[in-house]
Write a protein that binds this DNA or RNA. Structure first.
Length: 354
DNA sequence: AAACACCACAACCGCGGGGCG
DNA sequence: ACGCCCCGCGGTTGTGGTGTT
């Protein structure tokens, strides 16, 4: 109450982002780094509210984001972390650094919910969810909580110690056989056909920029008045983000014959790449170190990229905090507890799972 | 081939928390 | 201590794509 809606100004654009807008935003962030979102629309001329810019960046444009196919490993992590943390998607996302909270939330709300529903037809509710909406007695609630915690322990233990998944950012499926096969599905990853439809954001942006450069020899940071490029990018995005490779420029083989000429963007490309790599590397710095790693990273802003790297995992610390806040114990203790206890309860957990 | 239904995801909305003056 | 501003989070909605009849 009393809070004015942030985006109700006239002239503020809503709806899907155009490639043109993406480029403007990315260019700006590369130059200035993420943050200070308030000033982004003003400085870039984007007709978007600051919040929209931030969301676009964090959920889509930010380097290091993996899209599409959730692996078995990720799925288990999500289920059990949710059991442990509740619907704290950001906290959960911090354990899956390549995924955004929005992505995880969507995944949970669609696929997992569906799976669970199938599995539990006949039972009252989605039993995995730590926050079942229906009223339950305190005793039930405690039992459920305990169950969930056990499940989470086991999952975390598995996920953190056993799995050393080969996370290549092109969604190599987790080959490790699912220990508990929690959902009763073999779930070789969902949405097979969509795997191709979702290029990584890195690729998207790279393609975006490539084509942009091709079509506009003079690189600018703000070309919103160029209708031709705009149209071009519109097409490009349509093709690029919806899997079509009809546009020759997007078929994987046609990579940037000429982008070397555009030194202004070389760093951007390499930055994206390096950030992706580093992200992959850091993704499995193994979660047991995840939260501690936090930010040795340092805002080393020699280039925008370093900022990107740092930014790509912004939540580890926060998430650690969030996770710790669950029990008001430091996460390291929490983890220790999880590890120690998980083995002991494994058999029990298995029972609880089914 | 067309119409309809369903699904998946991107984006929006509103609230709460933290920092700062 | 208080109020304001900004940012982040979780829930929800809108829309485009895909599958089915």
């Amino acid at each position: 109450m009393g809070r004015p809606p942030c985006c109700d100004k006239v002239g503020v654009k809503k709806g899907p982002w155009t490639p043109e807008e993406d480029i403007i935003l990315v260019s700006y962030i590369q130059e200035h780094g993420p943050g200070n979102w308030r000033s982004v629309p003003t400085n870039t001329g984007l007709m978007r509210c600051s919040k929209s810019c931030r969301l676009r960046w964090t959920n889509y444009l930010r380097p290091g984001i993996k899209r599409g196919n959730f692996t078995d490993h990720e799925e288990k992590m999500i289920i059990h972390l949710q059991a442990l943390l509740g619907n704290r998607w950001a906290a959960i996302a911090s354990y899956l650094p390549q995924r955004t909270d929005n992505d995880i939330k969507n995944y949970r709300n669609t696929h997992l919910k569906k799976k669970l529903r199938k599995l539990q037809t006949g039972t009252a509710e989605d039993g995995i969810s730590g926050n079942s909406q229906q009223p339950i007695s305190k005793g039930q609630w405690e039992r459920r909580l305990q169950t969930d915690i056990h499940m989470a322990k086991q999952a975390l233990c598995e996920a953190l110690s056993l799995d050393k998944p080969s996370h290549d950012h092109h969604h190599v499926p987790d080959l490790k056989p699912s220990l508990s096969n929690i959902n009763g599905t073999t779930s070789t990853t969902t949405r097979p056909h969509q795997a191709s439809t979702y290029a990584s954001n890195t690729e998207n942006i790279a393609r975006l920029l490539e084509n942009w450069m091709k079509s506009s020899p003079k690189v600018r940071t703000n070309s919103s008045d160029d209708h031709q490029t705009q149209i071009h990018h519109q097409n490009m995005l349509n093709n690029g983000s919806s899997s079509s490779t009809t546009d020759g420029a997007h078929s994987g083989t046609t990579t940037t014959p000429d982008h070397h000429e555009h030194h202004g963007f070389d760093s951007l490309f390499s930055s994206f790449n390096s950030s992706t790599l580093s992200d992959n590397a850091s993704t499995h710095l193994s979660a047991e170190n995840n939260h501690r790693q936090t930010s040795t990273t340092t805002n080393n802003n020699n280039t925008g990229l370093m900022m990107f790297q740092d930014e790509s995992k912004p939540d580890l610390e926060a998430a650690a905090g969030a996770a710790a806040a669950v029990d008001q114990v430091p996460l390291t203790l929490l983890e220790k507890w999880l590890f120690d206890d998980a083995t002991a309860h494994q058999a029990h957990d298995q029972d609880m799972l089914f």
